[in-house]
Design a protein around this nucleic acid. Structure first.
Lengths: 198, 198
DNA sequence: TCCAGAATTGACTAGTCAGTCAAATATTCT
DNA sequence: AGAATATTTGACTGACTAGTCAATTCTGGA
């Protein structure tokens, strides 16, 4: 079968993408260790050797996914941030963006969670992942300067914000009714906001 | 060598405890899958067969640890709770207890975290684990009745409180200076409290 | 002391999985 | 076209691991 004969046209480089997409799906519901590379390649429609042609090791594949998702998440957090002039506005927008992204990308969120709690994480990837989020420190810092945020340890604020929003998304994800879900998201964001405002 | 000759007197039933303690330590820093049963038995000073004499499978061992730690954590959360008369007092005490326990038992905290994010968790253990925490729902409910807590979804409040405190402990754990650490804990608890109070 | 059952041992098994490699196929360049 | 290079394949290997089991040792009671 030649690609120009197929319904599923797949250029050669797309195999790499197919592997990444399949890996994400499988990792999210079976975990890193519960997902053999053989299964990834099978579900992606490639041979085992092909997977190792594109990724030197399984860990490389995981790290690659991590960096990619982390970068995408950082980008999503920034959506519309420039338009907000006040620190308060920026922070509110940030929270909204975070929740929206988490709700829309459950597999990616799960992956990031698993990665963070996994003991076999390459320190390098961990570090590069965080580098995308430096701008958050600035926003928090500005908020404190403006006096709209309580003067607390910025790293603590960052940790607690992230954790609380994570909890919020987990809770909101199990609520089926869209109206109720929106109400819960609003309540959750209020929780975060009240926690940090002066 | 007979036990009465040894400096490390170890009655027969203590092997079970030795296995559990060793497993906790190893799981906490290598993860479930990164810790072979052979290593657990070796470090606990027993034969491989002995481990499987006390625990039918590796998963049984993990579940057992989980139930035990969960029960202990629930107990720790309750310390001094009876003495508090108001909902506000109870909730403040609760937060303090949670942080204190998390800081004092990093391995157990890590274990619970890993367990929660592990995809191969027995639903039974998960359920029994939660059963120890039903009393929290009541406290939250009382707080809302009293009017000291904002009227929001109790499950959401529970999720976010747990997540935020978890984030707080993570952050506080990396701070070496005791004074600064105490300040951060106080700030963190304020965050949680401000998030939920009316 | 002797026995029955509980506890303990560690060599062994059966299976799994990450990663290799030589051969085959496709693509690009001249 | 034909050579050179890039990609793809899947059978295979070597390492590792959960769990077994027959044999041995320990323990408490008669």
């Amino acid at each position: 079968m030649y690609s120009w004969e197929s319904d599923h046209v797949q250029s050669r480089q797309d195999k790499r993408e197919a592997i990444l997409a399949t890996a994400l799906r499988l990792f999210a519901d079976r975990g890193f260790v519960g997902t053999p590379t053989s299964l990834i390649s099978k579900e992606a429609g490639v041979a085992t050797g092909t997977l190792f042609f594109y990724f030197k090791t399984k860990e490389d594949l995981i790290d690659d996914l991590y960096k990619r998702i982390k970068a995408e998440a950082a980008q999503a957090l920034c959506r519309g941030l420039k338009m907000e002039k006040t620190g308060k506005g920026k922070l509110r927008r940030l929270g909204n963006n975070a929740v929206t992204w988490g709700m829309r990308n459950p597999e990616k969120k799960k992956f990031l969670e698993m990665f963070a709690h996994s003991p076999f994480v390459s320190a390098g990837a961990q570090e590069e992942g965080m580098s995308h989020f430096i701008f958050l420190k600035d926003i928090i810092h500005d908020g404190i300067q403006e006096g709209v945020i309580r003067d607390m340890d910025p790293a603590l604020l960052f940790c607690m914000m992230a954790a609380a929003i994570n909890g919020l998304v987990s809770r909101a994800s199990v609520v089926k009714d869209p109206m109720e879900r929106d109400r819960i998201i609003a309540e959750g964001l209020d929780f975060v906001w009240n926690g940090m405002k002066t």
